[in-house]
């Protein structure tokens, strides 16, 4: 086989290989959507984060606006401190409420942001003050049972 045919085949092979990689990156994965080029970080403390995990989406009105970057336990307040990497294109008022929500009954947990009305916007390193913890199913059921028991029997 001559050098040129060989080169041609290898060229075709490399192009197909990179084409496959591109297909995986753009069509299968979310290379374009999920990697915010510029982010700013925002902190929030929760009493209970339930099953929230790093890399879980941060959504507002159903649109992904950031991702959970870090989860720590704060030894001062004995609460969970969650850091979000927010897409720099979206800004939120200071009095935004962060809540931990579940997609579907048993789905993954994510952060929902409800924008407030403050004129100041959250900047890099700021903390969200108002938070709502994850709904823990066992607690919810326990609460329900307790309420039923407390009701006067008719």
């Amino acid at each position: 086989m001559s050098r040129t045919t060989l080169d041609l085949w290898v060229g075709v092979f490399v192009v197909i290989g990179f084409g496959a990689l591109l297909f995986l990156a753009l069509r299968v994965g979310n290379f374009a959507a999920a990697n915010f080029s510029e982010t700013y970080s925002v902190r929030a403390q929760f009493d209970n984060i339930g099953g929230l995990k790093v890399r879980a989406p941060v959504k507002s009105a159903g649109v992904v606006v950031g991702r959970v970057a870090d989860i720590r336990f704060d030894t001062q307040s004995y609460r969970a401190e969650v850091t979000f990497a927010m897409d720099a294109r979206y800004e939120f008022p200071r009095d935004t409420i962060a809540s931990i929500l579940t997609s579907g009954l048993l789905g993954e947990q994510y952060i929902g942001l409800d924008p407030g009305a403050d004129l100041d916007m959250l900047g890099n390193g700021d903390a969200i003050q108002i938070t709502q913890s994850a709904v823990v199913l066992e607690k919810l059921i326990g609460q329900f049972m307790f309420d039923r028991a407390a009701e006067p029997a008719n």
């Binding site: 490399v14 290989g17 990179f18 496959a20 990689l21 297909f23 995986l24 069509r27 299968v28």
Partner: peptide, 13 residues
């Protein structure tokens, strides 16, 4: 090999 792996995965999808 990495190129073949990418092609394999793409064909699988």
């Amino acid at each position: 090999m990495p190129l073949l792996v990418a092609i394999f995965s793409a064909m699988g999808v």
